[in-house]
Design a protein around this nucleic acid. Structure first.
Length: 556
RNA sequence: GUCCCAGUAGCUCAGCAGGAUAGAGCAAUAGCCUUCUAAGCUAUGGGUCGCAGGUUCGAAUCCUGCCUGGGACGCCA
């Protein structure tokens, strides 16, 4: 149950009814009633700017309109305590706090489902993320994409969308051939032979590892084998090895996929020629300079793109178009791609392809994840793919812990660059927001445990009317917001709003904790009410952290 | 040259489907542990919201131009 939403809807309805009753506008003219939560408490629980919006339609001064609306309000219907007109014509509503009393029972009843809504109405959304080439370790940037994608999916799921997570495996094409060549070189080197890495080879330590493992397992067996067979074997071996490692790293990072989609299957199932045929039938292709081109400029791209190269092989784009066609054919209402900032230039051509395939561009969305800069000892840590010295996700998890990494990555908007401060993430101090939130949860757990030990828990009857302290009201209001916060984060694709929310809630809890004593044997009624409140806060913090994928410890 | 993202307090960032005196954390200063975990709390100071125009009753938020930082502009993936 979403108590706050219900209250808001009631109020909106009442404002609309009053406006019409006051003959300020008829039903068609009536703009959407917008209720906002004022930053300043003295402006009430909700405020509306309807009077300003109506100024033109009703041809009256906003303040006069506001007065007319207020005069026609049925205050009992919308549980209004007090109404004020302020500033240029804002109407501020102060609600009776009785609706707040329903929040705690609602949370306690919903338990781990508190925060879930059906805002998404079962809309089918597929999110494709990470999709790193299986040619090396996951590094910092990938980790941010993984955390963002995962939390976005969690949030969408909680808001009633039907979500599917997918990883696209680039197991065909050049990069995989390069992987085979790199493995070959490392293998030969492990045997003590003179072998040079290919020009575009993968220099990561993991490939060196593979070479060693192969040398130990097979000796020089493959050195004397024919090159094509050797490479074919190395390709499969390398692919399996790299993919296995990626999957393991992600699983340890608490990221799971519903589907791992192989690029090769597109070749196998003839999906690429099908896609090409569709483009061709739509008259979106042409031949030039011995290559086949996609007329993407007709659909908003900067320049046309090659689909089939002179050497008859495909560009990266071609199987990718087939892949997106396949995704859409699976019946998703919307597909979301999470890409690194270095791929943003790729968006217009893919969007063009979506349309050329006959789909609406609104079904296709790309979330760009900006770069991550790593700082340690106050200095920027340089990363480079070529030297293979990028900071790996594995390393990060081991150094600072999964909770901190995940929290930091989803604390910021995806389209801001992120400075990741190793020292801060690592520190077990009050500077670290992860601990701050977790500590709030642990604190409550301790209180609840003591309540039981002292025989104060269990039989309490909850009387919301006893919760009158300012800090208590603040907590109740905040708790009531949670379902809408999650729904908004889902709708706007802004998972960081959940992080912000849980931080704010933790902050209110700490503040309350320092101001009021919960366990008071002298006052069992109040203690009972407060214990119930604490339980509700604990559940909500745990649920929010759950969405972020961070643990909620009972003790710290 | 074209395109994308960012520019808000000393630092890192929220806020941006227009709304009232622009927020948080850190850092700074001053306080709070015989009391449920001080990994906490309270208070104070700190801002030309990059710059210049425009739209509007109202702009950090929308539009245009410019400046700065980052990224992208392959018959690579």
């Amino acid at each position: 149950m979403n108590v706050l939403k219900q209250t808001e809807d009631n109020l909106k309805q009442e404002i609309a009814a009053s406006t019409i009753k006051a003959k300020l506008a008829n039903e068609e003219e009536l703009p959407e009633i917008i209720l906002e939560k004022p930053k300043d408490k003295s402006h009430g629980d909700f405020a509306t700017n309807i009077a300003m919006q109506l100024a033109r339609i009703a041809k009256k001064a906003p303040r006069q309109i506001a007065e007319d609306i207020v005069a026609n309000l049925d205050e009992t219907k919308a549980s209004i305590e007090k109404v004020e007109i302020a500033g240029p014509g804002f109407i501020n509503f102060f609600l009776k706090n009785d609706f707040l009393g329903e929040v705690v029972p609602a949370v306690l009843e919903a338990k781990e489902t508190y925060g879930r809504t059906n805002a998404g109405d079962g809309e089918r959304i597929q999110v494709e993320f990470v999709s790193v080439n299986p040619t090396g370790d996951l590094h910092l940037g990938h980790a941010r994409g993984a955390a963002f994608g995962d939390v976005l999916c969690n949030v969408l799921g909680a808001a009633g969308y039907n979500v599917e997570r997918e990883y696209y495996i680039n197991d065909a094409g050049n990069q995989i051939d390069n992987l085979a060549l790199s493995v070959e070189a490392r293998y030969l080197q492990a045997l003590g032979k003179d072998a040079e890495m290919p020009e575009d080879g993968y220099h990561g330590q993991d490939i060196v590892e593979i070479g060693k493992v192969l040398a130990e397992a097979y000796g020089d067996k493959w050195a004397s084998e024919e090159k094509s067979e050797r490479l074919a074997f190395f390709k499969e071996y390398g692919l399996k090895y790299e993919l296995g490692k990626i999957e393991k790293d992600l699983a340890d990072f608490r990221v799971q996929f519903d589907n791992w989609f192989s690029e090769r299957s597109l070749y196998k199932d003839d999906k690429i020629s099908e896609a090409l045929k569709t483009l061709d039938e739509g008259n979106y292709t042409y031949e030039k300079d011995g290559a086949t081109w996609f007329k993407s400029t007709e659909l908003g791209d900067d320049k046309d793109r090659v689909l089939i190269k002179q050497d008859t092989s495909f560009t990266y784009l071609t199987p990718d178009i087939a892949y997106h066609k396949n995704k859409l054919e699976r019946g998703f209402d919307k597909i979301i791609n999470v890409w690194g900032a270095d791929h943003h230039g790729y968006v217009p051509r893919m969007r063009a392809a979506i349309q050329a395939l006959g789909y609406s561009e609104e079904q296709f969305e790309v979330k760009i994840i900006q770069m991550v800069n790593l700082f340690e000892n106050g200095e920027k840590v340089k990363m480079s793919k070529r030297t293979g010295r990028a900071v790996a996700l594995r390393e990060l998890m081991e150094e600072v812990g999964i909770d901190a990494v995940r929290y930091f990555f989803v604390a910021r908007s995806n389209d801001s660059q992120l400075d990741f401060d190793m020292d801060l993430a690592r520190s077990q101090s009050n500077d670290n927001p992860v601990y701050y939130v977790q500590y709030a949860h642990a604190r409550i757990c301790t209180m609840l445990k003591q309540a039981e030990e002292k025989g104060l828990a269990g039989s309490e009857t909850f009387d919301a009317a006893l919760l009158t302290a300012e800090k208590e009201i603040d907590l109740l209001k905040k708790l009531g917001e949670f379902p809408q916060t999650v729904a908004e984060a889902a709708e706007k694709h802004t998972p960081h709003k959940v992080t912000q929310y849980v931080f704010d809630l933790a902050s209110l809890l700490h503040s309350f904790y320092n101001a009021e004593k919960v366990l008071d044997p002298q006052n069992k009624e109040l203690t009972g009410a407060r214990i119930a409140l604490m339980k509700a806060v604990r559940i909500t913090i745990a649920n929010a952290l759950g969405l972020i994928g961070v643990t909620a410890p009972e003790k710290m």
